[in-house]
């Protein structure tokens, strides 16, 4: 008869319940504690020195955390940033090689003196492309799902501007390299920020990260060199200059936005 009213009372009002609750939840405590200490991951920083455990298959094959050790770790946000950044870079270099491939025959036919320049720029782009291909394979990052679309779009862009003439082709190079240069600059800035923070905490910066920053820096400098060549070859003389460059730059930004996501 008392039952209905009593069952509605909360557990805290029944002191003897604690002896039951404890054995149920105490084994959760270590698990909860470590989870909570790691949970705030919503910002871009390596400032929290987190204890990570390495995956190890024990004899019975169960996946367990063993001997936690302090090591500079990448947060999920950092991994995601690297993943999408490298994917975009690969897509960009793919497009660049195809643009130059398609531009070269009509341009070189009309202006044979540009052959060495076109070859020089193409070779550098091909080098960048293989650098990013290797990085993607090494870090197991999927290429963009728009791969065939970019292949088609880049060839079409290169061919069209190539047929339009030397100035248009150079304006195309100028527009693309401006966008790409800015894009690489942003990446270098973010990566250098990470390195600085890691060093400030006195943690060791993995060689891999330093190498990556150097690679991206070198590639950015080469892209900006192409920009200078393009301006030197009368890119500004292209008609209609404003329309052409703004359309191409808008297209680049759109392609970057999409490749970051899919």
């Amino acid at each position: 008869m008392l039952l209905p009213s009593l069952t509605k009372r909360s557990a805290s009002q029944l002191p003897y319940l604690h002896q039951y609750q404890l054995p149920v939840f105490d084994f959760l405590a270590p698990c909860l504690a470590t989870r909570i200490s790691q949970s705030p991951r919503l910002h871009f920083s390596t400032s929290r020195r987190r204890r990570r455990a390495e995956v190890q298959s024990t004899d019975n094959g169960s996946l367990q955390a063993t001997s936690p050790k302090v090591k500079t770790a990448l947060s999920d946000e950092q991994r995601k940033f690297l993943e999408s950044a490298l994917r975009v870079n690969q897509a960009g270099e793919l497009a660049a090689t195809l643009i130059y491939t398609a531009q070269t025959p009509p341009i070189v036919k009309a202006h044979p003196h540009l052959r060495p320049l076109m070859k020089h720029m193409y070779d550098q782009e091909a080098g960048h492309f293989s650098t990013f291909n290797n990085l993607l394979a090494k870090h197991r990052i999927r290429p963009t799902a728009m791969y065939p679309v970019w292949q088609f779009a880049a060839t079409a862009l290169g061919w069209t501007t190539g047929i339009m003439g030397r100035e248009a082709a150079m304006a195309c190079t100028e527009a693309v390299e401006t966008e790409i240069g800015e894009h690489y600059n942003t990446q270098v800035r973010v990566l250098l920020g990470w390195l600085e923070e890691t060093e400030k905490k006195g943690e060791e910066v993995p060689e891999e990260m330093r190498e990556l920053v150097e690679q991206i820096r070198k590639i950015r400098d080469e892209e900006l060199e192409h920009l200078d060549h393009a301006v030197g070859e009368d890119a500004k003389e292209a008609r209609p200059y404003e329309l052409l460059t703004s359309v191409i730059r808008g297209g680049c930004r759109g392609a970057i936005w999409i490749s970051e996501r899919v």
Partner: peptide, 26 residues
């Protein structure tokens, strides 16, 4: 169970299951 993009041997990866769950499930 989330995937971990950017796989790298230079950085440790988290175990997919915490020890308690791993023991019970195996």
């Amino acid at each position: 169970h989330l995937s971990s993009p950017y796989y790298s041997s230079a950085f440790p990866t988290e175990p997919p299951y915490p020890p308690t769950e791993s023991e019970i499930l195996s």
